[in-house]
Amino acid sequence: MGSRWGVNRTVGQIYALLFVTERSLHADDIGEKLGISRSNVSFGLKELQAWGLVRLTRVPGDRREYFSSLGDVWEIFRVVAAERRRREIAPTLSVLRESMLVKPGAPDDAFAQERMREMYELVDLANNWFDDLQRLSPESLAQLMRMGNKVQKLLSAKDRLLGGAKAKEPDA
């Protein structure tokens, strides 16, 4: 799954091991269980720490560092989503914002700039929606996700009701 989500295969394997293991593991344990070199384990753990996906702990009397994954799946979801946003969405918004500041020199440039403005508005809207989602409790977020296409039905019903109310207003 990790390689499909844009992380190195070894990083994905390390995270999967930590996720399904109840106790914290040190780098030697990880390398032994996965059959990977100590340097690859170190690299993978640094990457996972940069993402904020692993916790580092120490055991009294032991000089080694022990690692575990975040415990709550909703916390994992939030951390991954926030990090992807920081790494992918924020730079995309910056590039699109900068492109809209350039004066179009030709009709084709104006068309391209309009398309980039549309893309900026979409990405910005999704980014702002993500802010709202981050503030929801795990229970509310799960409830929203379970609603699925019921949200579309609710919005359609609202439009029908408001459309009907608007049509009746001129007669009043």
Rank of each mutant, 00 (worst) to 15 (best):
S3I: 01
Q152Y: 14
G148F: 01
V123T: 07
G52M: 12
Q152I: 11
K168E: 06
E139V: 00
E75C: 02
M116K: 11
L93H: 04
D62M: 12
I30H: 01
Q143Y: 06
F77A: 14
D108Y: 05
R78C: 01
F111N: 10
S24V: 12
N40A: 03
R55V: 13
M100H: 14
M100G: 07
T92Y: 08
L70V: 12
S24K: 11
N149E: 14
M147G: 02
G6T: 06
V54M: 03
A82D: 11
L48M: 11
D132S: 10
D159Y: 04
R78M: 13
T10L: 00
R58S: 04
G105I: 03
L155C: 04
G2D: 10
F19N: 07
L17M: 12
R4Q: 09
W5K: 13
R85L: 10
G35Y: 02
R55H: 13
N127V: 14
T21P: 03
L136E: 00
K46P: 06
V59S: 02
M145G: 00
E32C: 07
G164F: 15
A106C: 06
D72Y: 15
D159I: 15
L162V: 15
F77H: 05
L136P: 00
A126R: 15
F67N: 05
G31K: 01
A172P: 15
N127D: 15
M100I: 09
Q13T: 11
V80T: 13
M100T: 12
F43D: 06
M119R: 05
E114G: 11
E118M: 09
P138E: 10
D72C: 08
F67P: 05
F77S: 07
N128G: 10
G6I: 03
Y66K: 03
S3W: 07
L161R: 03
F130I: 04
A167R: 14
E22S: 08
L101W: 13
R87M: 04
D171T: 10
S42W: 03
Q113W: 03
R23F: 08
S24Q: 01
I76C: 05
K168W: 15
S24C: 02
H26K: 08
A142W: 14
I89N: 06
V79E: 08
G71N: 08
K158Q: 13
D124I: 04
A165W: 12
A81T: 00
V41G: 00
V11S: 10
T21W: 08
V73Y: 14
L70T: 09
R117W: 02
A157E: 02
D159N: 13
Y15E: 11
S156K: 10
L48P: 09
V11M: 00
L154S: 05
R117G: 08
P91Q: 13
N8P: 11
G6Y: 09
S37P: 01
V59H: 10
T21H: 03
D29P: 01
A142C: 05
F67E: 01
N128C: 15
G31S: 02
V95D: 06
A106V: 06
I89Q: 06
A16S: 07
Q152V: 15
G148K: 07
V20K: 13
F130L: 13
E98C: 07
L101T: 15
V7C: 07
N8C: 03
R97Q: 13
S68V: 05
E83D: 04
V151R: 12
R146C: 15
A142H: 11
Y120M: 12
S39W: 01
F111P: 10
K150P: 00
A112K: 10
D109V: 06
E121I: 04
L96P: 05
